[in-house]
Amino acid sequence: MSKQLGNQADDYRWPHRHLLSLEELSSQDIRFLLTTALGFESVSTRSVKKVPALRGRVVVNLFFEDSTRTRASFHLAASRLSADVLEFSAKGSSVAKGETLIDTARNIEAMGVDAIVVRHQQSGAARMVSQAVGCSVLNAGDGQHEHPTQGLLDVFTIAKRLNRTDTFDFTGLKVAIVGDIAHSRVARSNVHALQKLGARVVLVGPPTLLPGGFRDMGCELSHDLDAVLPGVDAVNMLRVQFERLTSQAFPSVREYSSLFGLTAARMQRARKDILVMHPGPMNRGLEIESAVADSPNSTILEQVTNGLAIRMAGLFLTVGAS
């Protein structure tokens, strides 16, 4: 047991009933979850893509924001653990009739569920739900705060590509996160996960979208992608979230693209084996050029695949802890 968990202590126990943020997880928690996810990977490649681990449990997808892959990924992850899944959308529901988030969550819990997966446009929504209900709550993205499973699947993808799954130790690695850092919950979760595993993080974006507060979190800040690119092992290209941009954050899409878009020409400056990541959905030709997104450096589809194992591990551990 100790051998397989690398540096994990033998008496370690996963202590969290909820998965709300990576900020509150210890590096040991993160490594334990990632190691657990390794065990779930094979479930998706065999003939019967199901294990009985959460048989008889109920998982609810409670999504107040549009989502395709995260919702589908959580649904599939719960199904592969043999849980029953209830899909709940804000559109056309009692929320549209004026019900509050807490009332909605309590009503769903009253049906006897074991876990609620929440996505909401307000930062802190998942924590608020977790304080109002007795079941496990998993944050599938809350406003501009965190998207923990995305952060976990991103570091899982890096570890797999760079053969660091035996220890999940990222000492010596440097990762750039590029784009709209200010509005990005993906960036926040990634910063926490990467730093806790020992990597250095450099955030790149236009000054309007790059809050100085990240420097206090120990990140390097830069407005010059060309200067950063040669020195990093992975570059995570964030989507420009037009739906969250309320003011004119940059003069034009074309200017943003020419300064911060990952083009084939710009890739010449990077290390040959650099990992190109994107949480999706991509704006092809804006933050990332098609030739780069579809190159061997790209981990974009692996990230989606790895998301399943990560979410299975997250559901298994949190529901198991309650």
Partner: peptide, 20 residues
């Protein structure tokens, strides 16, 4: 681990390994 019949009792103490 994922097939154990006492998973609901041992819960988070379960350590999932890899099948190869």
């Amino acid at each position: 681990t994922l097939y154990r019949d006492d998973l609901s009792e041992i819960g988070s103490q379960a350590v999932v390994g890899t099948t190869d």
